[in-house]
């Protein structure tokens, strides 16, 4: 318990938060990495997932690759990228995108697929174009599952961003690994607690956003 008290003391001291290597900057870096990775992977994965769900084409491949992606060890991907492109943000960013894309694709196609086929047929019978069917019927009705995929990807990226420091980038992994190397248990533990708090806070925000969306009529 003394370790915990020391760690909390470290987290709560103003010194730990200040300066270019302080927790304030590290938390901002961590969130920035997460946001950037999510924007990049959503830009790739969301259209792909929606097209797969809408047309049913490439579904077998998507199921297989999302299953296989779950088996990919994050540390392996990030160190491999680190050796391939060198130290900095590029390597972890490649790893984040590789890990986030499958979750977003899976959420997007299962969201579109979960929409009642009769509703889709009815929309088509009204004369809606395939594009209108996708945008005005399938996406709103499948939105909860689609965003569920993005939520899962966010959790994965926040967790993996902790490992970014291992290959020379910033983020909250920096004080964690620094504490680990210098046997500074308070710093290592304190940084871990901050990562956990950030992860749970972001997830809680997602849950709250999903709950608000559910109240809007026409969205499921």
């Amino acid at each position: 318990m003394t370790h915990l008290m020391e760690a909390l003391q470290w987290v709560l001291s103003a010194e730990s938060w200040a300066g270019p290597g302080g927790l304030g900057v590290r938390t901002a870096e961590h969130l920035w990495y997460t946001l950037l990775a999510l924007v990049l992977s959503t830009a790739i994965a969301l259209p792909a997932g929606l097209v797969i769900g809408h047309t049913g084409r490439g579904r077998a491949l998507a199921v297989l690759s999302t299953g296989a992606a779950r088996a990919l060890p994050t540390l392996g991907i990030i160190t491999l990228a680190g050796l391939a492109v060198g130290i900095g943000l590029k390597a972890p960013m490649i790893a984040f995108v590789v890990l986030a894309v499958p979750s977003i694709i899976a959420g997007a196609y299962s969201g579109v697929e979960a929409v009642d086929r009769r509703v889709v047929d009815a929309a088509r019978a009204q004369g809606l174009s395939p594009w209108q069917v996708l945008v005005t019927v399938e996406v709103p009705l499948g939105l909860r599952l689609i965003l569920g995929g993005v939520r899962l990807a966010t959790l994965q990226v926040i967790a993996t961003a902790t490992l970014a420091a291992y290959v020379g980038a910033g983020g909250l992994g920096r004080p964690l690994f620094l504490g680990l190397r210098n046997h500074d248990y308070a710093m290592m533990l304190g940084a871990s607690l901050v990562v956990i708090a950030v992860a749970i806070l972001v997830d809680a925000l997602f849950i709250a956003a999903l709950r608000i969306l559910r109240r809007i009529p026409g969205i499921h």
């Binding site: 915990l4 490992l163 992994g173 964690l176 290592m188 607690l193 956990i196 997830d203």
Partner: peptide, 21 residues
């Protein structure tokens, strides 16, 4: 079930470090 799911939100490396306490 929601709170059990929240456990999954905890990143693995920090949990490995916090769990010993």
């Amino acid at each position: 079930l929601g709170s059990a799911g929240l456990l999954y939100a905890i990143p693995s490396l920090p949990l490995f470090i916090v769990l010993p306490i």
